[in-house]
Design a protein around this nucleic acid. Structure first.
Lengths: 197, 197
DNA sequence: GTCTATACTGAGATAGAC
DNA sequence: GTCTATCTCAGTATAGAC
């Protein structure tokens, strides 16, 4: 069958979203997909590569929409720096759409981040998209030092990671709104000790 | 030897801090500790229990200091709600001390959180300490709804997790200061859409 | 009580027949 | 392309030596 690959991907997405990546064995995947164990290594090479292909297939279109949206906002702003909330909106809105159409994939993404596998994924596939958002954020918070900014990017990554993996129940859009408010507050904070509060 | 247990704990701390919990095999631990494989299961029962004992041994004193510090601040404030920065300071200061004396353990904690093992640990050992800090934070941000507050606690957990696991190099105290500023900004953010930025 | 030797089960990976 | 058989290594369990 030519859709053996697809069956493996579908089964893997379901299981990894439910249980996490490490907790999902390839033997569970082949049982759910109804294929042979060696088929995974034939089509993907390894468990890691299976995950990677799962991610790029689904995340690719989302990342494209993110960049598109960011550029549209930038064009509308006519050269002025975008407010943080706008940048974050461009980042999350395409994911919210995806969450409606395919909630399981969002859960997979959350698992990936929480299990510490995101850096490798970003390095391989998300880098161009991510760089543009970092640039846009930098323009939104010129009041802090570069070092402080880099740390805030780091903090933001942690929050996003932790949040995506939350309970799937509840309104996803609402959760993202709360997240954006929190992150914007963090980025707007003064860069040095003093007048906070 | 009666310090077989200690040798196992020391070796495990080193390896888990460097590689993470999942990536560290018990066979690596026994090789580094110079003991027999079954000794681990004799003294601890399982890999999970080994981790748990490692955490409570080191984190116990830190958590006690945290509560002490929080109560001292509360006494000094004479019943008034503590500002967020003060609450977070009580939480992190004891960890900074620990980080100076034992940086490896801080890395272990970070690994734990990033690998998603923290909920179980908190449930078993950190609950009383954690509850008091949540209460103190709640008093510091009365302007948001309870649901919004719970989410911000969730966001905070994610940031802390992600940050502890960062590169060990650099000034830990400075990193914590940046973290506190960011978190305070997030907690101070308005609770509903409107006037932000 | 403490520890060693050894075996059991299930994981990911691989070679080679069809 | 697919499957069978097998390899290595993980965590775990137990029997028995000191």
């Amino acid at each position: 069958m030519i859709d053996t690959k697809q069956k493996i991907l579908d089964a893997a997405e379901q299981l990894i979203g439910d249980q996490g990546y490490a907790a999902t064995s390839l033997r569970q995947v082949i049982a759910a997909a109804g294929v042979n164990l060696a088929a995974i290594h034939y089509h993907f090479g390894s468990k890691d590569e299976l995950l990677h292909e799962l991610l790029v297939r689904k995340a690719g279109p989302v990342n494209e929409k993110r960049v598109e949206l960011l550029e549209r906002y930038a064009a509308e702003a006519d050269g002025a720096p975008l407010p943080i909330e706008k940048v974050l909106d461009a980042f999350f809105a395409p994911m919210v759409e995806t969450a409606d159409a395919n909630p399981q994939f969002v859960r997979v993404m959350g698992r990936i981040v929480v299990e510490g596998l995101l850096p490798a994924v970003v390095q391989r596939s998300f880098q161009p998209m991510f760089s543009r958002f970092v640039t846009a954020l930098r323009r939104a918070v010129p009041h802090i030092s570069e070092e402080e900014f880099q740390w805030r990017i780091h903090f933001m990554t942690g929050v996003i990671a932790h949040t995506l993996c939350g309970v799937p129940g509840g309104n996803f859009q609402e959760r993202i709104d709360r997240l954006i408010r929190f992150l914007a507050g963090g980025f707007h904070a003064p860069g040095v000790r003093g007048a906070e509060r």
